[in-house]
């Protein structure tokens, strides 16, 4: 168990790199990623867990980084949108109009990526359940739904080819 009083040095493992950071116990992962590690992909939209723009993966599980303390991420693998490279999810969001202003996009992409990693066969209701934790104000969600479906289709095809 990690016990931290006042400021402490720590290493965060983000996108395969080690980032030395100085933490207060109350610092959120979102603020530390952006302000100390310079990882700007996760966005602050509400810092209250309502919008999902700050979604990152910790050990593969999507979490809202505004609701996670940075100290909780010590020793764990954090992946942000910068850690994904040309995934089917990213390509599909670009091709299908899965965003307009792009501010919510990193959060949606991380959540979609985790969804399709863990539930490649997800049906509409599972997809809706997962993605209703993120807010988008521009698209009316049509482009996002199309992007998720396309990414899912391609991932399934890729897997069947591999088999």
């Amino acid at each position: 168990m990690i016990v931290i009083h006042g400021l402490s040095e720590a290493l965060l493992h983000v996108n395969g790199e080690e980032f030395p950071v100085v933490l207060r116990p109350g610092d959120t992962l979102l603020r530390v990623l952006r302000e100390q590690a310079g990882v700007m992909g996760p966005k602050g939209g509400c810092e209250n867990g309502d919008c999902g723009a700050c979604t990152v993966l910790i050990e593969g599980i999507p979490v809202k980084s505004c609701l996670v303390l940075a100290v909780e991420a010590i020793g764990k693998k954090v992946i942000t949108v910068e850690g994904l490279k040309d995934t089917e999810v990213q390509k599909a969001y670009h091709e299908m109009g899965g965003f307009q202003c792009g501010y919510c996009t990193a959060g949606f992409i991380m959540n979609t990526y985790a969804l399709l990693e863990s539930h490649p066969e997800a049906d509409e209701s599972v997809k809706n359940d997962w993605l209703s934790s993120n807010l988008c104000r521009c698209t009316g969600y049509e482009g996002i739904q199309k992007a998720v479906n396309l990414a899912q289709e391609r991932i399934q095809n890729n897997q069947s080819i591999r088999k």
């Binding site: 700007m40 966005k43 670009h94 992409i109």
Partner: peptide, 10 residues
């Protein structure tokens, strides 16, 4: 926008 390399004011 899909790679997180876009920059907004903040």
């Amino acid at each position: 926008k899909v790679r997180g390399s876009i920059r907004y004011a903040n």
